[in-house]
């Protein structure tokens, strides 16, 4: 993986940008939309650890229901759709979800203590202000989205509330 060789955040950012542009050229789909599906405000928290959670708002303006089934990413070694649950020991745990539906004309929010895309095996720290790309996998196809890295304790996308 390119970013494993990166020693500074600048190098990491450059590598991620390179990966992003390469990915964009590879795909036919316009970044962020797919058959009436639109994904906005994708974000994650800055971390030095090996795991990050990606949150976003998914809107389905299409005529048919869609299913979010997972994701893929060059940033981590493993990408999964997960849901948060507080177990009876009072510990928050994320469990793998097979899919979540995004109804026609409806919305689905991936958010903290809710459903999220989990990136495991991060090779480099995520720094606030960085951006990277991941791929969301729907039953209807794939979609590349930009994820912006927010503060380590952020609760929402820094542009949340803006009308995109």
């Amino acid at each position: 993986m390119i970013h494993r060789l990166a020693v500074a955040s600048i190098a990491t950012a450059a590598a991620l940008t390179f990966a992003a542009s390469a990915a964009a050229e590879d795909h036919d789909h316009h970044v962020g939309t797919l058959q009436g599906l639109r994904v906005v405000h994708a974000w994650t928290r800055a971390t030095d650890g090996g795991t990050a959670y990606v949150f976003c708002d998914i809107e389905n303006s299409g005529a048919r229901d869609a299913q979010l089934v997972g994701g893929d990413s060059a940033v981590g070694s493993d990408t999964a759709l997960v849901g948060f649950r507080l177990n009876s020991a009072g510990e928050g745990v994320y469990e793998i979800l097979p899919s979540v539906p995004v109804k026609a004309g409806g919305k689905m929010a991936l958010m903290p203590e809710g459903a999220a895309i989990r990136l495991d095996g991060l090779g480099a720290p995520l720094k606030q202000g960085d951006e990277f790309e991941i791929e969301l996998e729907f039953d209807t196809g794939h979609m590349e989205i930009h994820v912006s890295v927010e503060a380590p304790n952020a609760r929402a996308h820094s542009h949340a509330g803006h009308d995109h």
Binding site: G83, F84, A109, E113
Partner: peptide, 24 residues
Amino acid sequence: LWANYALQSEFTRADTMAFFPGAV
């Protein structure tokens, strides 16, 4: 489990609030 997230998104609207007590 997945249905809870869908329901939460679906019933988060102008006239209703849907929340996970576990998340709060």
